[in-house]
Simulated assay, not measured.
Amino acid sequence: MTNSVSLELARLATMKPAELRSRWHEVYRNVAPNISPDLLRRGIAYRLQEKVYGKLPSYIKRELDRLNGKGGTSAPTPSRLGPILPGTRFVREWNGKTIAVTATEGGFEWDNDTYGSLSEIARKVTGAHWSGPRFFGLAAKVA
Protein backbone atom coordinates (compact mmCIF):
# COMPACT_ATOMS: atom_id res chain seq x y z
CA MET A 1 0.00 0.00 0.00
CA THR A 2 1.37 3.42 -0.84
CA ASN A 3 2.37 5.60 2.06
CA SER A 4 -0.22 8.33 1.38
CA VAL A 5 -3.08 5.79 1.26
CA SER A 6 -1.84 4.19 4.48
CA LEU A 7 -1.76 7.56 6.20
CA GLU A 8 -5.24 8.45 4.95
CA LEU A 9 -6.65 5.11 6.13
CA ALA A 10 -5.09 5.60 9.56
CA ARG A 11 -6.56 9.12 9.73
CA LEU A 12 -10.06 7.75 9.07
CA ALA A 13 -9.95 5.87 12.39
CA THR A 14 -9.80 9.14 14.35
CA MET A 15 -12.36 11.14 12.36
CA LYS A 16 -15.60 12.25 13.96
CA PRO A 17 -18.92 11.46 12.20
CA ALA A 18 -19.22 14.97 10.71
CA GLU A 19 -15.67 14.72 9.33
CA LEU A 20 -16.46 11.30 7.86
CA ARG A 21 -19.58 12.65 6.13
CA SER A 22 -17.54 15.50 4.68
CA ARG A 23 -14.80 13.12 3.50
CA TRP A 24 -17.47 10.83 1.97
CA HIS A 25 -18.77 13.80 -0.01
CA GLU A 26 -15.22 14.51 -1.24
CA VAL A 27 -14.47 10.95 -2.41
CA TYR A 28 -17.91 9.95 -3.72
CA ARG A 29 -19.10 13.42 -4.82
CA ASN A 30 -22.52 12.90 -3.26
CA VAL A 31 -24.18 13.13 0.15
CA ALA A 32 -23.17 10.46 2.65
CA PRO A 33 -25.86 7.86 3.33
CA ASN A 34 -27.38 7.62 6.80
CA ILE A 35 -25.15 4.79 8.04
CA SER A 36 -22.92 4.27 11.06
CA PRO A 37 -19.49 5.92 11.26
CA ASP A 38 -17.90 2.47 11.00
CA LEU A 39 -19.59 1.81 7.67
CA LEU A 40 -18.71 5.31 6.45
CA ARG A 41 -15.05 4.59 7.27
CA ARG A 42 -15.19 1.30 5.39
CA GLY A 43 -16.82 2.88 2.34
CA ILE A 44 -14.31 5.73 2.23
CA ALA A 45 -11.39 3.32 2.69
CA TYR A 46 -12.69 1.15 -0.15
CA ARG A 47 -13.00 4.13 -2.49
CA LEU A 48 -9.53 5.48 -1.62
CA GLN A 49 -7.94 2.10 -2.29
CA GLU A 50 -9.99 1.69 -5.46
CA LYS A 51 -8.59 4.98 -6.80
CA VAL A 52 -5.01 3.83 -6.19
CA TYR A 53 -5.25 0.15 -7.11
CA GLY A 54 -8.18 0.11 -9.52
CA LYS A 55 -11.67 -1.31 -9.46
CA LEU A 56 -12.66 -4.93 -9.03
CA PRO A 57 -12.38 -6.97 -12.21
CA SER A 58 -15.71 -7.06 -14.05
CA TYR A 59 -16.14 -10.84 -13.57
CA ILE A 60 -15.93 -10.41 -9.77
CA LYS A 61 -18.36 -7.48 -9.83
CA ARG A 62 -20.81 -9.57 -11.91
CA GLU A 63 -20.59 -12.43 -9.41
CA LEU A 64 -21.14 -10.08 -6.45
CA ASP A 65 -24.12 -8.53 -8.25
CA ARG A 66 -25.50 -12.00 -8.92
CA LEU A 67 -25.12 -12.97 -5.27
CA ASN A 68 -26.79 -9.72 -4.19
CA GLY A 69 -29.82 -10.38 -6.36
CA LYS A 70 -28.99 -7.95 -9.16
CA GLY A 71 -28.87 -8.77 -12.83
CA GLY A 72 -32.06 -10.83 -13.05
CA THR A 73 -31.23 -13.54 -10.52
CA SER A 74 -32.82 -13.96 -7.13
CA ALA A 75 -31.07 -13.18 -3.86
CA PRO A 76 -29.23 -16.08 -2.25
CA THR A 77 -31.15 -18.15 0.27
CA PRO A 78 -29.63 -20.31 3.00
CA SER A 79 -30.29 -23.48 1.01
CA ARG A 80 -28.39 -22.03 -1.95
CA LEU A 81 -25.55 -20.80 0.23
CA GLY A 82 -24.55 -24.22 1.49
CA PRO A 83 -22.82 -24.69 4.83
CA ILE A 84 -21.68 -21.62 6.76
CA LEU A 85 -17.96 -21.96 7.34
CA PRO A 86 -16.25 -20.91 10.59
CA GLY A 87 -14.86 -17.41 10.24
CA THR A 88 -17.73 -16.20 8.05
CA ARG A 89 -18.76 -12.68 9.12
CA PHE A 90 -22.28 -11.31 9.01
CA VAL A 91 -22.70 -7.54 9.33
CA ARG A 92 -25.96 -5.64 9.70
CA GLU A 93 -26.76 -2.12 10.81
CA TRP A 94 -29.69 -1.89 13.22
CA ASN A 95 -30.93 1.39 14.72
CA GLY A 96 -27.58 3.10 14.09
CA LYS A 97 -25.54 0.26 15.61
CA THR A 98 -23.37 -2.11 13.58
CA ILE A 99 -24.02 -5.76 14.43
CA ALA A 100 -21.06 -7.95 13.44
CA VAL A 101 -21.36 -11.72 13.97
CA THR A 102 -18.71 -14.36 13.32
CA ALA A 103 -19.53 -18.00 12.60
CA THR A 104 -17.58 -20.43 14.80
CA GLU A 105 -17.34 -24.21 15.06
CA GLY A 106 -19.94 -24.16 17.84
CA GLY A 107 -22.36 -21.50 16.59
CA PHE A 108 -22.17 -17.75 16.19
CA GLU A 109 -20.20 -15.23 18.23
CA TRP A 110 -21.57 -11.76 18.91
CA ASP A 111 -20.95 -9.28 21.70
CA ASN A 112 -18.54 -11.68 23.46
CA ASP A 113 -21.17 -14.45 23.68
CA THR A 114 -21.82 -17.57 21.62
CA TYR A 115 -25.28 -18.33 20.23
CA GLY A 116 -26.64 -21.44 18.56
CA SER A 117 -28.26 -19.61 15.65
CA LEU A 118 -28.44 -16.31 13.82
CA SER A 119 -32.10 -16.13 14.84
CA GLU A 120 -31.15 -16.03 18.53
CA ILE A 121 -28.93 -13.03 17.83
CA ALA A 122 -31.59 -11.31 15.72
CA ARG A 123 -34.11 -11.71 18.57
CA LYS A 124 -31.62 -10.37 21.12
CA VAL A 125 -30.81 -7.35 18.92
CA THR A 126 -34.38 -6.42 17.97
CA GLY A 127 -36.40 -7.71 20.91
CA ALA A 128 -38.75 -9.35 18.41
CA HIS A 129 -38.96 -12.66 16.59
CA TRP A 130 -36.84 -12.54 13.43
CA SER A 131 -35.49 -15.11 11.06
CA GLY A 132 -31.72 -14.83 11.53
CA PRO A 133 -30.91 -15.49 7.86
CA ARG A 134 -33.48 -12.89 6.82
CA PHE A 135 -32.24 -10.34 9.40
CA PHE A 136 -28.69 -10.66 8.04
CA GLY A 137 -29.84 -10.52 4.41
CA LEU A 138 -29.28 -14.16 3.50
CA ALA A 139 -32.88 -14.93 2.66
CA ALA A 140 -35.39 -12.97 0.63
CA LYS A 141 -38.75 -11.90 2.08
CA VAL A 142 -41.53 -14.37 1.50
CA ALA A 143 -44.34 -12.63 -0.39
Rank of each mutant, 00 (worst) to 15 (best):
D65S: 09
P78E: 07
M1Q: 14
S6T: 15
Y28T: 07
D113Y: 03
L7S: 14
L20C: 01
T98H: 10
V125L: 00
L7T: 12
P83F: 01
L7A: 14
R41N: 08
G71I: 12
V52H: 03
R92K: 15
K97M: 08
N34T: 14
V5Q: 11
K70L: 14
K55Q: 10
P78T: 07
G54E: 00
S79G: 01
A140K: 08
S4N: 15
W130E: 00
Q49R: 15
T77A: 03
R92F: 06
L7H: 13
N112V: 03
P17I: 06
F90Q: 03
L48F: 03
S79I: 06
L118F: 01
G82P: 06
G107N: 04
G71Y: 10
L56Q: 09
A45G: 13
R29N: 15
L9S: 06
L138Y: 08
R62L: 10
K70A: 14
L7W: 10
S117M: 04
T114I: 13
D113R: 05
M15S: 05
S22T: 15
E93Q: 14
G127C: 04
G96S: 07
G107Y: 08
Y28E: 12
G96T: 05
K70T: 13
D111A: 01
K55H: 08
L7C: 12
A122K: 02
I84G: 01
A140P: 05
E105T: 06
D38M: 13
G72S: 09
T104K: 12
I84Y: 02
G132K: 00
F135L: 01
W130V: 05
N95V: 06
T102E: 14
E105C: 01
N34I: 13
E50W: 00
H25C: 11
L81W: 01
R123I: 00
R123E: 07
